[in-house]
Design a protein around this nucleic acid. Structure first.
Length: 467
RNA sequence: GGUCGGGUGGCCGAGAGGCGAGGCAAGGGACUGCAAAUCCCUCUACACGGGUUCAAAUCCCGUCCCGACCUCCA
Protein backbone atom coordinates (compact mmCIF):
# COMPACT_ATOMS: atom_id res chain seq x y z
CA UNK A 1 0.00 0.00 0.00
CA UNK A 2 1.27 3.43 -0.88
CA UNK A 3 1.78 6.17 1.67
CA UNK A 4 -1.27 8.17 2.57
CA UNK A 5 -0.70 11.70 3.77
CA UNK A 6 -3.33 13.37 5.89
CA UNK A 7 -3.75 16.68 7.63
CA UNK A 8 -3.73 16.76 11.39
CA UNK A 9 -5.57 19.61 13.07
CA UNK A 10 -3.37 19.21 16.13
CA UNK A 11 -0.15 19.98 14.25
CA UNK A 12 -1.79 21.88 11.36
CA UNK A 13 0.36 19.96 8.94
CA UNK A 14 -0.10 17.27 6.36
CA UNK A 15 1.93 14.25 7.34
CA UNK A 16 2.36 10.59 6.56
CA UNK A 17 -0.36 8.46 8.04
CA UNK A 18 0.94 5.53 10.05
CA UNK A 19 -1.64 3.46 11.91
CA UNK A 20 -1.11 2.20 15.43
CA UNK A 21 -1.60 -1.37 14.25
CA UNK A 22 -0.20 -2.23 10.85
CA UNK A 23 -2.94 -2.75 8.31
CA UNK A 24 -5.72 -1.50 10.56
CA UNK A 25 -7.29 1.91 10.99
CA UNK A 26 -9.56 2.93 13.82
CA UNK A 27 -11.68 6.03 13.32
CA UNK A 28 -14.12 7.80 15.58
CA UNK A 29 -16.34 10.42 13.95
CA UNK A 30 -18.69 12.66 15.86
CA UNK A 31 -22.04 11.99 14.28
CA UNK A 32 -25.35 13.67 14.75
CA UNK A 33 -26.85 15.21 17.80
CA UNK A 34 -30.36 14.26 16.79
CA UNK A 35 -32.18 17.44 17.63
CA UNK A 36 -33.31 18.61 14.17
CA UNK A 37 -33.57 17.52 10.57
CA UNK A 38 -30.27 17.05 8.77
CA UNK A 39 -29.03 19.84 6.53
CA UNK A 40 -26.44 19.45 3.81
CA UNK A 41 -23.66 20.63 6.10
CA UNK A 42 -24.25 17.70 8.46
CA UNK A 43 -24.25 15.36 5.56
CA UNK A 44 -21.09 16.83 4.09
CA UNK A 45 -19.25 15.70 7.19
CA UNK A 46 -20.58 12.16 6.84
CA UNK A 47 -19.74 12.13 3.13
CA UNK A 48 -16.17 13.30 3.76
CA UNK A 49 -15.46 10.67 6.36
CA UNK A 50 -17.16 8.00 4.30
CA UNK A 51 -14.83 8.88 1.43
CA UNK A 52 -11.86 8.73 3.81
CA UNK A 53 -12.99 5.32 4.96
CA UNK A 54 -13.49 4.11 1.38
CA UNK A 55 -10.03 5.31 0.40
CA UNK A 56 -8.33 3.70 3.39
CA UNK A 57 -10.18 0.47 2.67
CA UNK A 58 -9.21 0.60 -1.00
CA UNK A 59 -5.63 1.21 0.09
CA UNK A 60 -5.65 -2.10 1.89
CA UNK A 61 -6.49 -1.14 5.46
CA UNK A 62 -9.03 -2.86 7.61
CA UNK A 63 -11.11 0.10 8.76
CA UNK A 64 -13.16 0.26 11.92
CA UNK A 65 -15.34 3.34 11.84
CA UNK A 66 -17.38 4.37 14.83
CA UNK A 67 -19.88 7.15 14.27
CA UNK A 68 -21.99 7.99 17.27
CA UNK A 69 -25.48 9.30 17.75
CA UNK A 70 -25.86 11.73 20.61
CA UNK A 71 -29.46 11.16 21.56
CA UNK A 72 -29.59 13.19 24.72
CA UNK A 73 -28.55 16.79 25.27
CA UNK A 74 -29.95 20.13 26.36
CA UNK A 75 -31.48 20.97 23.02
CA UNK A 76 -33.24 17.66 22.62
CA UNK A 77 -34.77 18.02 26.07
CA UNK A 78 -35.80 21.63 25.52
CA UNK A 79 -37.27 20.93 22.15
CA UNK A 80 -39.14 17.87 23.35
CA UNK A 81 -40.58 19.83 26.26
CA UNK A 82 -41.61 22.62 23.93
CA UNK A 83 -43.27 20.25 21.48
CA UNK A 84 -44.80 18.22 24.28
CA UNK A 85 -43.34 14.94 23.04
CA UNK A 86 -41.03 12.46 24.74
CA UNK A 87 -37.36 13.31 24.38
CA UNK A 88 -36.70 9.77 23.17
CA UNK A 89 -39.42 9.99 20.54
CA UNK A 90 -37.95 13.25 19.28
CA UNK A 91 -34.43 11.86 19.21
CA UNK A 92 -35.50 8.76 17.34
CA UNK A 93 -37.48 10.76 14.81
CA UNK A 94 -34.44 12.80 13.87
CA UNK A 95 -32.10 9.84 14.06
CA UNK A 96 -34.26 8.18 11.38
CA UNK A 97 -34.06 11.31 9.26
CA UNK A 98 -30.28 11.29 9.48
CA UNK A 99 -30.20 7.61 8.61
CA UNK A 100 -32.44 8.24 5.60
CA UNK A 101 -30.19 11.11 4.47
CA UNK A 102 -27.08 8.95 4.82
CA UNK A 103 -28.80 6.26 2.77
CA UNK A 104 -29.82 8.70 0.06
CA UNK A 105 -26.23 9.90 -0.26
CA UNK A 106 -24.77 6.41 -0.21
CA UNK A 107 -22.90 6.99 3.03
CA UNK A 108 -21.91 3.49 4.08
CA UNK A 109 -23.08 2.57 7.56
CA UNK A 110 -20.26 2.78 10.10
CA UNK A 111 -18.88 -0.39 11.63
CA UNK A 112 -20.89 0.50 14.69
CA UNK A 113 -23.18 3.39 15.53
CA UNK A 114 -23.40 3.73 19.30
CA UNK A 115 -25.99 5.89 21.02
CA UNK A 116 -25.08 8.00 24.02
CA UNK A 117 -27.95 6.70 26.14
CA UNK A 118 -26.77 3.16 25.62
CA UNK A 119 -23.44 3.92 27.28
CA UNK A 120 -24.32 5.41 30.65
CA UNK A 121 -22.41 2.62 32.37
CA UNK A 122 -19.24 3.46 30.49
CA UNK A 123 -19.70 7.16 31.28
CA UNK A 124 -20.05 6.45 34.99
CA UNK A 125 -16.95 4.28 34.89
CA UNK A 126 -15.02 7.09 33.22
CA UNK A 127 -16.22 9.63 35.77
CA UNK A 128 -15.22 7.28 38.57
CA UNK A 129 -11.68 7.15 37.22
CA UNK A 130 -11.59 10.93 36.92
CA UNK A 131 -12.89 11.49 40.42
CA UNK A 132 -10.60 8.85 41.91
CA UNK A 133 -7.53 10.44 40.39
CA UNK A 134 -8.59 13.93 41.38
CA UNK A 135 -9.26 15.31 37.89
CA UNK A 136 -12.98 15.68 38.45
CA UNK A 137 -15.16 16.63 41.37
CA UNK A 138 -18.76 16.24 42.41
CA UNK A 139 -19.99 19.25 44.39
CA UNK A 140 -22.77 17.17 45.86
CA UNK A 141 -25.79 18.37 43.92
CA UNK A 142 -25.59 15.65 41.26
CA UNK A 143 -23.29 17.59 38.95
CA UNK A 144 -19.83 16.32 38.10
CA UNK A 145 -17.20 18.68 36.70
CA UNK A 146 -13.79 18.31 35.18
CA UNK A 147 -11.31 20.63 36.83
CA UNK A 148 -9.52 22.05 33.83
CA UNK A 149 -6.78 23.93 35.65
CA UNK A 150 -5.49 20.65 37.04
CA UNK A 151 -4.88 19.27 33.56
CA UNK A 152 -1.34 18.81 32.33
CA UNK A 153 -2.41 20.38 29.09
CA UNK A 154 -5.64 21.82 27.81
CA UNK A 155 -6.77 23.58 24.62
CA UNK A 156 -3.86 22.26 22.59
CA UNK A 157 -6.07 21.48 19.62
CA UNK A 158 -7.50 24.97 19.27
CA UNK A 159 -4.34 26.71 20.44
CA UNK A 160 -6.08 28.82 23.03
CA UNK A 161 -5.16 29.68 26.60
CA UNK A 162 -7.56 29.18 29.45
CA UNK A 163 -7.30 32.80 30.49
CA UNK A 164 -7.95 33.93 26.96
CA UNK A 165 -11.43 32.46 26.97
CA UNK A 166 -14.33 34.75 27.52
CA UNK A 167 -15.91 34.16 30.91
CA UNK A 168 -18.57 31.50 30.56
CA UNK A 169 -22.15 32.57 30.73
CA UNK A 170 -23.64 29.71 32.64
CA UNK A 171 -27.10 29.40 31.14
CA UNK A 172 -28.99 26.96 33.29
CA UNK A 173 -26.19 26.77 35.81
CA UNK A 174 -26.78 30.16 37.33
CA UNK A 175 -26.06 28.93 40.80
CA UNK A 176 -22.83 27.33 39.78
CA UNK A 177 -20.99 24.88 41.92
CA UNK A 178 -17.94 25.11 39.71
CA UNK A 179 -14.53 25.69 41.24
CA UNK A 180 -13.59 27.59 38.11
CA UNK A 181 -15.93 29.01 35.50
CA UNK A 182 -13.99 27.15 32.78
CA UNK A 183 -14.63 23.76 34.35
CA UNK A 184 -17.11 21.86 32.26
CA UNK A 185 -19.91 19.50 33.22
CA UNK A 186 -19.30 15.81 32.73
CA UNK A 187 -22.67 15.09 34.26
CA UNK A 188 -25.68 17.27 34.94
CA UNK A 189 -27.91 16.84 37.95
CA UNK A 190 -31.49 15.70 37.52
CA UNK A 191 -34.06 18.42 36.92
CA UNK A 192 -37.78 17.91 37.34
CA UNK A 193 -39.34 16.36 34.27
CA UNK A 194 -36.01 15.43 32.74
CA UNK A 195 -34.61 11.94 32.36
CA UNK A 196 -31.96 10.84 34.79
CA UNK A 197 -29.84 7.88 35.71
CA UNK A 198 -28.48 7.02 39.15
CA UNK A 199 -24.78 7.55 39.84
CA UNK A 200 -22.65 7.47 42.99
CA UNK A 201 -22.80 11.29 42.95
CA UNK A 202 -26.54 11.63 42.53
CA UNK A 203 -29.12 11.27 39.80
CA UNK A 204 -28.47 13.06 36.56
CA UNK A 205 -27.78 12.85 32.89
CA UNK A 206 -24.73 13.11 30.63
CA UNK A 207 -23.14 16.44 29.80
CA UNK A 208 -22.41 16.99 26.17
CA UNK A 209 -18.83 15.77 25.84
CA UNK A 210 -18.61 12.71 28.02
CA UNK A 211 -20.36 10.31 25.65
CA UNK A 212 -17.73 10.54 22.93
CA UNK A 213 -14.84 9.79 25.26
CA UNK A 214 -16.76 6.88 26.79
CA UNK A 215 -17.83 5.40 23.47
CA UNK A 216 -14.51 5.89 21.71
CA UNK A 217 -12.89 4.03 24.59
CA UNK A 218 -15.52 1.30 24.57
CA UNK A 219 -15.08 0.47 20.89
CA UNK A 220 -11.62 1.63 19.93
CA UNK A 221 -9.67 1.35 23.17
CA UNK A 222 -7.37 3.79 24.89
CA UNK A 223 -5.73 4.99 21.67
CA UNK A 224 -7.00 5.08 18.14
CA UNK A 225 -5.87 6.46 14.81
CA UNK A 226 -8.20 9.21 13.67
CA UNK A 227 -10.83 11.34 15.31
CA UNK A 228 -13.04 13.31 12.98
CA UNK A 229 -15.82 15.82 13.00
CA UNK A 230 -16.86 19.25 11.88
CA UNK A 231 -14.65 22.29 12.33
CA UNK A 232 -17.02 23.73 14.91
CA UNK A 233 -16.39 20.82 17.23
CA UNK A 234 -12.74 21.66 17.81
CA UNK A 235 -13.69 23.83 20.73
CA UNK A 236 -15.17 22.98 23.09
CA UNK A 237 -16.25 19.47 22.19
CA UNK A 238 -12.99 17.94 21.04
CA UNK A 239 -10.87 19.85 23.54
CA UNK A 240 -13.05 18.49 26.28
CA UNK A 241 -12.93 14.97 24.92
CA UNK A 242 -9.14 15.20 24.97
CA UNK A 243 -9.22 16.64 28.48
CA UNK A 244 -11.41 13.87 29.88
CA UNK A 245 -9.70 11.05 28.09
CA UNK A 246 -6.16 12.14 28.81
CA UNK A 247 -7.00 12.88 32.42
CA UNK A 248 -8.22 9.29 32.62
CA UNK A 249 -4.84 8.15 31.33
CA UNK A 250 -5.87 7.29 27.81
CA UNK A 251 -3.73 8.08 24.79
CA UNK A 252 -6.86 8.94 22.82
CA UNK A 253 -6.76 10.12 19.18
CA UNK A 254 -3.46 10.14 17.30
CA UNK A 255 -4.75 12.41 14.56
CA UNK A 256 -7.56 14.93 14.23
CA UNK A 257 -9.40 15.63 11.02
CA UNK A 258 -12.03 18.30 10.64
CA UNK A 259 -14.28 19.04 7.70
CA UNK A 260 -15.22 22.59 6.79
CA UNK A 261 -18.76 23.84 6.45
CA UNK A 262 -21.24 24.43 3.75
CA UNK A 263 -21.77 28.17 3.74
CA UNK A 264 -24.20 30.62 2.24
CA UNK A 265 -23.04 34.18 1.60
CA UNK A 266 -19.91 33.23 3.46
CA UNK A 267 -21.78 32.27 6.57
CA UNK A 268 -22.10 28.81 7.99
CA UNK A 269 -25.44 27.14 7.97
CA UNK A 270 -27.36 27.49 11.15
CA UNK A 271 -30.91 27.44 12.19
CA UNK A 272 -30.66 30.79 13.90
CA UNK A 273 -29.67 32.39 10.61
CA UNK A 274 -32.46 30.56 8.86
CA UNK A 275 -30.12 29.42 6.14
CA UNK A 276 -30.21 25.69 6.71
CA UNK A 277 -30.64 23.70 3.54
CA UNK A 278 -32.36 20.53 4.50
CA UNK A 279 -31.28 17.38 2.73
CA UNK A 280 -34.90 16.54 1.94
CA UNK A 281 -35.43 19.82 0.16
CA UNK A 282 -32.27 19.56 -1.94
CA UNK A 283 -33.17 16.00 -2.90
CA UNK A 284 -36.27 17.31 -4.58
CA UNK A 285 -33.97 19.21 -6.91
CA UNK A 286 -31.18 16.73 -7.60
CA UNK A 287 -30.65 13.03 -7.09
CA UNK A 288 -28.75 11.71 -4.08
CA UNK A 289 -25.80 10.75 -6.22
CA UNK A 290 -25.67 14.28 -7.63
CA UNK A 291 -25.84 15.90 -4.22
CA UNK A 292 -23.03 13.66 -3.05
CA UNK A 293 -20.96 14.61 -6.09
CA UNK A 294 -21.55 18.26 -5.31
CA UNK A 295 -20.65 17.92 -1.64
CA UNK A 296 -17.53 15.95 -2.56
CA UNK A 297 -16.31 18.38 -5.17
CA UNK A 298 -14.57 20.84 -2.84
CA UNK A 299 -11.65 19.83 -0.66
CA UNK A 300 -12.95 18.67 2.71
CA UNK A 301 -11.02 21.40 4.54
CA UNK A 302 -12.37 24.18 2.32
CA UNK A 303 -15.64 25.94 2.87
CA UNK A 304 -18.19 24.99 0.26
CA UNK A 305 -20.16 28.04 -0.70
CA UNK A 306 -23.60 26.84 -1.64
CA UNK A 307 -25.58 28.27 -4.48
CA UNK A 308 -28.37 26.80 -6.46
CA UNK A 309 -26.60 27.45 -9.74
CA UNK A 310 -23.42 25.79 -8.47
CA UNK A 311 -25.47 22.76 -7.43
CA UNK A 312 -27.25 22.64 -10.79
CA UNK A 313 -24.01 22.98 -12.75
CA UNK A 314 -22.40 20.31 -10.66
CA UNK A 315 -25.31 17.96 -11.35
CA UNK A 316 -25.05 18.63 -15.07
CA UNK A 317 -21.33 17.90 -14.98
CA UNK A 318 -22.01 14.65 -13.19
CA UNK A 319 -24.63 13.59 -15.75
CA UNK A 320 -22.02 14.06 -18.46
CA UNK A 321 -19.73 11.61 -16.73
CA UNK A 322 -22.59 9.24 -16.12
CA UNK A 323 -23.64 9.46 -19.73
CA UNK A 324 -20.14 8.54 -20.90
CA UNK A 325 -20.12 5.53 -18.61
CA UNK A 326 -23.48 4.38 -19.97
CA UNK A 327 -22.38 4.79 -23.57
CA UNK A 328 -19.13 3.01 -22.82
CA UNK A 329 -21.14 0.13 -21.40
CA UNK A 330 -23.37 0.01 -24.48
CA UNK A 331 -20.41 0.05 -26.83
CA UNK A 332 -18.15 -2.41 -25.05
CA UNK A 333 -21.01 -4.63 -23.98
CA UNK A 334 -19.98 -4.77 -20.33
CA UNK A 335 -19.89 -2.52 -17.32
CA UNK A 336 -16.59 -0.83 -16.58
CA UNK A 337 -14.43 -2.32 -13.85
CA UNK A 338 -13.58 0.02 -10.98
CA UNK A 339 -9.87 0.62 -11.37
CA UNK A 340 -7.88 3.28 -9.57
CA UNK A 341 -5.80 5.43 -11.91
CA UNK A 342 -2.33 6.51 -10.88
CA UNK A 343 -2.97 10.23 -10.75
CA UNK A 344 -6.25 9.78 -8.92
CA UNK A 345 -4.46 7.70 -6.31
CA UNK A 346 -1.76 10.34 -5.98
CA UNK A 347 -4.41 12.99 -5.44
CA UNK A 348 -6.23 11.00 -2.79
CA UNK A 349 -2.99 10.16 -1.01
CA UNK A 350 -2.34 13.87 -0.71
CA UNK A 351 -4.82 14.57 2.09
CA UNK A 352 -7.80 13.47 -0.01
CA UNK A 353 -7.25 16.08 -2.72
CA UNK A 354 -10.55 15.40 -4.41
CA UNK A 355 -10.40 18.54 -6.60
CA UNK A 356 -7.14 17.27 -8.09
CA UNK A 357 -8.85 13.91 -8.48
CA UNK A 358 -11.66 15.62 -10.35
CA UNK A 359 -9.13 16.93 -12.84
CA UNK A 360 -8.03 13.37 -13.55
CA UNK A 361 -11.65 12.35 -14.04
CA UNK A 362 -12.08 15.23 -16.49
CA UNK A 363 -9.04 13.99 -18.39
CA UNK A 364 -10.39 10.42 -18.43
CA UNK A 365 -13.70 11.75 -19.68
CA UNK A 366 -12.12 13.68 -22.52
CA UNK A 367 -9.96 10.75 -23.62
CA UNK A 368 -12.83 8.33 -23.24
CA UNK A 369 -15.14 10.42 -25.39
CA UNK A 370 -12.39 10.65 -27.95
CA UNK A 371 -12.21 6.87 -27.82
CA UNK A 372 -15.91 6.71 -28.64
CA UNK A 373 -15.40 8.99 -31.64
CA UNK A 374 -12.46 6.85 -32.77
CA UNK A 375 -14.29 3.60 -31.94
CA UNK A 376 -11.23 2.54 -29.95
CA UNK A 377 -12.62 0.16 -27.38
CA UNK A 378 -9.32 -0.22 -25.52
CA UNK A 379 -9.24 3.52 -24.86
CA UNK A 380 -12.92 3.55 -23.94
CA UNK A 381 -12.49 0.70 -21.50
CA UNK A 382 -9.38 2.10 -19.84
CA UNK A 383 -10.90 5.50 -19.22
CA UNK A 384 -14.31 4.18 -18.22
CA UNK A 385 -12.64 1.85 -15.74
CA UNK A 386 -10.63 4.62 -14.17
CA UNK A 387 -13.63 6.92 -13.95
CA UNK A 388 -15.67 4.22 -12.29
CA UNK A 389 -12.82 3.51 -9.88
CA UNK A 390 -12.68 7.16 -8.88
CA UNK A 391 -16.45 7.46 -8.59
CA UNK A 392 -16.58 4.41 -6.38
CA UNK A 393 -14.21 6.04 -3.90
CA UNK A 394 -16.28 9.21 -3.97
CA UNK A 395 -19.40 7.15 -3.35
CA UNK A 396 -20.83 8.26 -6.69
CA UNK A 397 -20.65 5.09 -8.74
CA UNK A 398 -23.77 5.10 -10.93
CA UNK A 399 -23.58 1.31 -11.22
CA UNK A 400 -23.69 0.95 -7.45
CA UNK A 401 -26.86 -1.03 -6.73
CA UNK A 402 -27.47 1.54 -4.01
CA UNK A 403 -28.47 3.99 -6.68
CA UNK A 404 -30.44 1.53 -8.78
CA UNK A 405 -33.68 3.08 -9.91
CA UNK A 406 -36.91 1.40 -9.00
CA UNK A 407 -38.11 0.93 -12.55
CA UNK A 408 -38.79 -2.65 -13.48
CA UNK A 409 -36.94 -4.38 -16.27
CA UNK A 410 -40.18 -5.20 -18.05
CA UNK A 411 -41.18 -1.58 -18.10
CA UNK A 412 -37.77 -0.49 -19.33
CA UNK A 413 -37.91 -3.01 -22.15
CA UNK A 414 -41.40 -1.94 -23.16
CA UNK A 415 -40.27 1.67 -23.05
CA UNK A 416 -37.26 0.87 -25.18
CA UNK A 417 -39.54 -0.77 -27.75
CA UNK A 418 -41.91 2.16 -27.84
CA UNK A 419 -39.17 4.71 -28.25
CA UNK A 420 -37.57 2.63 -30.97
CA UNK A 421 -40.86 2.60 -32.89
CA UNK A 422 -40.87 6.37 -32.73
CA UNK A 423 -37.23 6.49 -33.78
CA UNK A 424 -38.00 4.25 -36.77
CA UNK A 425 -40.69 6.71 -37.84
CA UNK A 426 -38.20 9.51 -37.43
CA UNK A 427 -35.61 7.64 -39.48
CA UNK A 428 -37.97 7.20 -42.40
CA UNK A 429 -39.03 10.84 -42.18
CA UNK A 430 -35.38 11.84 -42.35
CA UNK A 431 -34.84 9.56 -45.33
CA UNK A 432 -37.52 11.32 -47.29
CA UNK A 433 -36.07 14.62 -45.98
CA UNK A 434 -39.29 15.45 -44.15
CA UNK A 435 -37.38 17.23 -41.40
CA UNK A 436 -40.45 18.90 -40.01
CA UNK A 437 -41.86 15.46 -39.22
CA UNK A 438 -38.61 14.10 -37.85
CA UNK A 439 -38.08 17.12 -35.63
CA UNK A 440 -41.65 16.88 -34.40
CA UNK A 441 -40.94 13.35 -33.19
CA UNK A 442 -37.74 14.47 -31.48
CA UNK A 443 -39.45 17.43 -29.86
CA UNK A 444 -42.38 15.28 -28.82
CA UNK A 445 -40.09 12.81 -27.10
CA UNK A 446 -38.16 15.63 -25.44
CA UNK A 447 -41.40 16.97 -24.01
CA UNK A 448 -41.82 13.56 -22.36
CA UNK A 449 -38.34 13.81 -20.88
CA UNK A 450 -36.64 11.64 -23.48
CA UNK A 451 -33.58 13.02 -25.23
CA UNK A 452 -32.38 11.79 -28.60
CA UNK A 453 -28.76 11.85 -29.67
CA UNK A 454 -27.63 10.86 -33.15
CA UNK A 455 -24.40 8.97 -32.80
CA UNK A 456 -22.22 7.24 -35.38
CA UNK A 457 -23.83 3.99 -34.23
CA UNK A 458 -27.31 5.40 -34.78
CA UNK A 459 -29.70 7.28 -32.53
CA UNK A 460 -29.75 6.58 -28.79
CA UNK A 461 -32.28 7.70 -26.29
CA UNK A 462 -32.14 8.44 -22.60
CA UNK A 463 -34.45 9.69 -19.92
CA UNK A 464 -33.65 12.99 -18.32
CA UNK A 465 -32.71 11.83 -14.84
CA UNK A 466 -34.91 12.94 -12.02
CA UNK A 467 -34.45 12.43 -8.33
C1' G B 1 -10.04 40.95 23.91
C1' G B 2 -8.04 35.76 22.72
C1' U B 3 -7.78 31.86 18.99
C1' C B 4 -8.35 29.83 14.02
C1' G B 5 -9.35 30.18 8.78
C1' G B 6 -9.84 32.84 4.26
C1' G B 7 -9.52 36.96 -0.05
C1' U B 8 -7.11 33.36 -7.05
C1' G B 9 -9.83 34.97 -13.98
C1' G B 10 -17.19 36.39 -15.80
C1' C B 11 -18.37 32.05 -12.17
C1' C B 12 -16.88 27.58 -9.36
C1' G B 13 -12.45 25.71 -7.55
C1' A B 14 -7.01 23.63 -6.82
C1' G B 15 -1.99 24.96 -5.94
C1' A B 16 1.82 26.92 -1.33
C1' G B 17 8.91 29.57 -4.13
C1' G B 18 10.44 28.48 -10.69
C1' C B 19 7.07 25.13 -16.17
C1' G B 20 -0.46 29.31 -16.15
C1' A B 21 -4.62 22.32 -12.12
C1' G B 22 -9.35 21.41 -13.69
C1' G B 23 -14.43 22.50 -14.65
C1' C B 24 -18.43 25.90 -16.09
C1' A B 25 -19.51 30.13 -19.02
C1' A B 26 -17.85 32.97 -23.49
C1' G B 27 -15.74 33.18 -28.68
C1' G B 28 -14.04 30.30 -33.00
C1' G B 29 -13.82 25.53 -35.56
C1' A B 30 -15.01 20.02 -36.72
C1' C B 31 -19.24 16.66 -36.99
C1' U B 32 -24.88 17.14 -38.15
C1' G B 33 -30.37 18.27 -42.78
C1' C B 34 -30.86 21.26 -38.18
C1' A B 35 -30.01 20.11 -33.30
C1' A B 36 -28.11 17.46 -29.17
C1' A B 37 -23.86 15.00 -27.59
C1' U B 38 -18.66 14.89 -28.42
C1' C B 39 -13.84 16.61 -29.89
C1' C B 40 -10.17 20.64 -31.22
C1' C B 41 -8.55 25.80 -30.59
C1' U B 42 -8.73 30.68 -27.90
C1' C B 43 -9.25 34.21 -23.79
C1' U B 44 -9.13 36.16 -18.71
C1' A B 45 -5.91 35.43 -12.13
C1' C B 46 -3.66 35.53 -7.65
C1' A B 47 -7.09 41.89 -1.94
C1' C B 48 -3.45 46.17 -1.22
C1' G B 49 1.60 48.26 0.10
C1' G B 50 6.52 47.11 1.20
C1' G B 51 10.50 43.40 1.75
C1' U B 52 13.53 38.64 1.04
C1' U B 53 15.14 35.92 -3.44
C1' C B 54 18.29 34.84 -9.65
C1' A B 55 12.86 33.76 -9.22
C1' A B 56 6.86 35.22 -4.97
C1' A B 57 -0.11 33.69 -6.01
C1' U B 58 3.22 30.82 -2.71
C1' C B 59 8.03 33.13 2.31
C1' C B 60 8.46 37.76 5.76
C1' C B 61 6.40 42.63 7.62
C1' G B 62 2.37 45.93 7.49
C1' U B 63 -2.69 47.35 5.87
C1' C B 64 -7.70 46.49 4.37
C1' C B 65 -11.79 43.20 3.93
C1' C B 66 -14.66 38.53 5.00
C1' G B 67 -15.88 34.39 8.04
C1' A B 68 -15.65 31.08 12.33
C1' C B 69 -14.90 29.70 17.60
C1' C B 70 -14.60 31.43 22.90
C1' U B 71 -19.11 26.09 26.71
C1' C B 72 -25.86 25.01 21.28
C1' C B 73 -23.17 23.51 16.54
C1' A B 74 -21.16 19.15 11.14
Amino acid sequence: MSAINLYDTATREVGKFTPIKAGEVSIYVCGATVQASPHIGHIRSAVNFDTLSRWLTKSGYDVTLIRNVTDIDDKILHKAAHEKVSWWALAMKYEREFTAAFEALNVAPPTYEPRATGHITQMIELMQILIDNGSAYAPGNGDVYLEVRKLKRYLTLSGQRIDGLLPAVDGDEVISKKRDPRDFALWKSAKPGEPSWPTPWGDGRPGWHLECSAMAHAYLGESFDIHGGGLDLIFPHHENEIAQSEAAGYGFAKRWMHNAWVTQSGEKMSKSLGNSLLVDVILQRVRGIELRWYLSSAHYRSMLEYSQSALDESAIAFRRIESFLKRATEITGSQPQAIIGKSFAAAMNDDLAVPAGLATIAENLRLGNQGITDADSAVITKNANEIRGALEILGCDPFDTHFATGSSTDLTQAMDGVVKLALAERASARERKDFAASDAIRDGLLALGITIEDTAQGPRWSMIEKS
